[in-house]
């Protein structure tokens, strides 16, 4: 797995500021992780080890918290994050066939969530709160309502074209 996501020049400096802002105490863990998630789109292992050192926690505990919450990801995410709503309304209107259609289209196999080229991440979410538009997906926070497996092809076509594929 590629771990070379863009870590900018002063990452340690930046992280120190974040930690200083929230305090070097165990209770600062979740806010600090949220900031890292926001900046990098995932939680790089080496930064988690650093955070454990700085907050005087065991790395196992930091890993436990990072894996507990769905808002955190330990793998680098793709450029386009596709969220398929699988709340009750979307589920009964066929969200799973759509989920499968997307995975098939972007060629995701073996339970992977992100394509090898780092372009797409596909995940399900519990409810996007747009049940009237069911089934719903979002791509980088843009909402697509009443999607069908056929519509998926069109949507992905557009994105791939934009990426020059």
């Amino acid at each position: 797995m590629s771990r070379t996501a863009e870590v900018d020049l002063n990452v340690v400096d930046w992280l120190n500021n974040v930690i200083a802002e929230h305090g070097s105490t165990p209770s600062a863990l979740i806010p600090v992780l949220q900031e890292v998630q926001k900046k990098h789109n995932y939680l790089p292992e080496e930064l988690l080890t650093y955070i454990a050192t700085a907050l005087n926690l065991s790395p196992a505990t930091v890993y436990g918290v990072a894996t507990f919450y769905a808002q955190f990801s330990l793998d680098p995410k793709g450029k386009y994050i596709i969220k398929v709503c699988d709340g009750t309304a979307c589920h009964v209107r066929g969200s799973l066939p759509i989920y499968e259609a997307i995975r098939k289209r972007v060629k995701l196999v073996d339970g992977k969530a992100t394509t090898d080229d780092g372009l797409f991440s596909v995940e399900t979410v519990s409810c996007l709160g747009a049940c009237g538009l069911a089934p719903v997906i979002t791509i980088n926070d843009q909402v697509y309502g009443q999607v069908t497996p056929e519509a998926i092809d069109l949507i992905i076509d557009v994105l791939e074209k934009r990426e020059g594929m």
Binding site: L57, S58, A60, T61, Y63, G64, T67, F68, Y69
Partner: peptide, 10 residues
């Protein structure tokens, strides 16, 4: 006082 193991995932 080490904490090698912990719960992970949910």
């Amino acid at each position: 006082g080490i904490g090698v193991l912990d719960f992970a995932h949910r």
